[in-house]
Computed example of a mutant assay.
Amino acid sequence: MGKRDPRLYVLRHGQTAWSEIGKHTSFTDLSLTEKGAELVKKSAAAMVGENKLIDPSRIGKVFVSPRARAQETLALLGLPESVPVETTELLKEYDYGEYEGLLTKEIQEKSGKADWEIWLDGCPGGEMPEQVEARIDVLIQKARKELHEKVYDGTATEEEQQRCDVLFVAHGHILRGTAARWLNLPLNRGRDFQLDAGGVGVLSYEHHTINEPAVNRWNLIAF
């Protein structure tokens, strides 16, 4: 395998009963629907494996949300047990607080703001945008320092060079926010990165420098 720029893959968990109808789900621990599990299996077959989009032999670490829907999604990928996995609250979904389980129109009615937007207004009893942005930044820096920076500063061993990719398995809003912060954009630009249930994104770098983060591909889904 030749040298190439490190990548950060992001994978949104498969469909749940709430995501199917648009309910905001953060701390409620739902499992995948049968349809959601099948889509993840199709995505794994199409995109995970040697000479495919996500090559397990290049993954140096997986970070996954503690919620069941994310854990189930990761398990369905069938990655080798040798791939290190860290379950972290940094990848939990945007905490919706009092808006948990509500549709957007219901939140607009409850908040009294017809233009309520998660990216700008946050959630009472949950998280505000600046809190979400802060934990995303911590996780991005963790991934870069542990696996990516050494590729560019010349300190990576041959094995570290070959296994420098990272995979995040988590939720819609937190991963859309990750794309925005990867590019050093404000968190609210996460609205521009639609990510469907089971969707995959690829974040990397341009011109072989860690100082030029870029989006390589986005919202890839196996139908």
Rank of each mutant, 00 (worst) to 15 (best):
K23C: 15
K23V: 02
K23W: 00
K23L: 15
K23Q: 13
H24F: 13
H24R: 14
S26R: 09
F27A: 13
F27Q: 14
T28I: 08
D29F: 11
D29K: 09
D29W: 04
L30S: 10
L30Q: 11
L30V: 08
S31M: 07
S31L: 04
L32K: 10
T33P: 08
T33L: 06
T33Q: 09
E34Y: 10
E34W: 05
K35T: 11
K35R: 07
K35V: 12
G36A: 07
G36K: 12
G36L: 02
A37G: 14
A37C: 11
E38Q: 13
E38S: 11
E38L: 13
E38V: 09
E38R: 12
L39D: 05
L39K: 01
V40S: 03
V40I: 15
V40R: 05
K41P: 05
K41T: 14
S43K: 00
A44Q: 07
A44L: 01
A45K: 09
A46W: 00
A46D: 09
A46L: 07
A46R: 13
M47E: 15
V48H: 11
E50P: 02
E50A: 12
E50Y: 10
N51Y: 10
K52C: 05
K52W: 05
K52E: 07
L53T: 05
D55I: 01
I59F: 10
G60N: 04
G60W: 06
G60T: 04
K61L: 03
K61A: 06
F63D: 04
F63S: 03
F63L: 08
F63E: 05
V64I: 03
V64N: 00
S65V: 07
S65E: 03
P66Q: 02
R67N: 05
R67A: 13
A68M: 12
R69S: 00
A70W: 11
Q71Y: 04
Q71K: 15
E72M: 11
E72I: 09
E72G: 06
T73P: 02
L74G: 10
L74D: 12
A75Q: 12
A75E: 12
L76G: 04
L76R: 08
L76A: 01
L77E: 09
G78W: 03
P80C: 14
P80W: 14
P80I: 15
E81A: 15
S82C: 11
V83W: 06
